[in-house]
């Protein structure tokens, strides 16, 4: 597979010949069958594929939630494949900002406390924590709702809180898993605009999705099928050329 786009910045993610196998009862399921992928700083990548393509597994590996069965995975030059649980936790805390389909906010904590959480785990002191969380909420347009609890916010606002939480520790990548899956079309566009904004500010964004409309916002589209990369194209190759 030829890599389609020209590297712009530093190499953040480097995956080579990664496989992932699960045991389901007696059967061994091969979710990934040898995948290689490099992602550079300030890329905006959509990872696509039908269910069963290995998309979720890919996202778990990229997010350091899981380690590959075989193959090489380097994150900012660090060998993630061989890391222990707590080392992975530290990588997730510092390098990766997660945005989930179901927002995954803590229901009894207000927006500010939710955004502060990664900083708590990073050992940032109370005042700095607060200031940074406020700034992150401000940057997603929620400066006036910092003391609202998740159930007092709309779906779009909740996802903005989650994005602020993903941003707050200045991660190397923002990893969004179906970020608009639970939102209506209008709100989805709002949220994708937030990502666009973050991308323009220099962030590296990886969106895992099965919706073409969402993938269109990215600059590069990686398609998976049956545990292998089917295609890896720039957005213009992927969509504009078709048109």
């Amino acid at each position: 597979m030829e890599r389609a786009i020209r590297p712009k910045g530093k190499l953040v993610i480097q995956i080579e010949g990664v496989t992932k196998e699960y045991k389901m009862g007696d059967e061994i399921v091969k979710a990934l069958r040898g995948v290689s992928l490099s992602i550079y700083r300030n890329e905006y990548v959509a990872i696509m594929g039908p269910s069963g393509s290995g998309k979720s597994t890919m996202m778990n590996l990229l997010g350091c939630l899981d380690t590959p069965t075989a193959g090489k995975y380097e994150f900012n030059g660090k060998n993630v494949a061989a890391m222990e649980d707590d080392e992975l936790a530290a990588i997730r805390n510092k390098e990766i900002g997660f945005v989930f389909q179901t927002f995954n906010l803590l229901p009894r904590s207000d927006a500010l406390a939710n955004v502060e959480l990664p900083l708590v785990y990073a050992g940032v002191s109370g005042e700095e924590r607060r200031n940074r969380a406020l700034a992150a909420l401000e940057s997603v347009g929620l400066g006036s709702r910092v003391h609202h609890k998740p159930n007092e916010l709309s779906g779009g606002q909740r996802q903005r809180v989650a994005i602020a939480r993903a941003l707050v520790n200045n991660p190397s990548i923002i990893l969004a898993d179906e970020p608009t899956g639970n939102l209506d079309t209008k709100t989805s566009i709002d949220i994708m605009n937030v990502f666009e904004d973050l991308y323009n500010k220099g962030n590296t964004i990886i969106v895992v999705t099965h919706e073409e409309d969402i993938a269109r916002h990215a600059r590069r589209v990686v398609r998976l099928r049956d545990g292998l990369i089917e295609s890896d194209k720039t957005i213009s190759e992927e969509y504009l050329m078709q048109a």
Binding site: G63, L65, D85, D86, A89, A90, R92, N93, K94, F98, F100, N104, L106, L117, P118, Y121, A122, R165, N169
Partner: peptide, 16 residues
Amino acid sequence: TKEIGTRKALGARRRT
């Protein structure tokens, strides 16, 4: 369980 997953994703260690 899901909250635990979220916390772990955000960097909570086992100890935490």
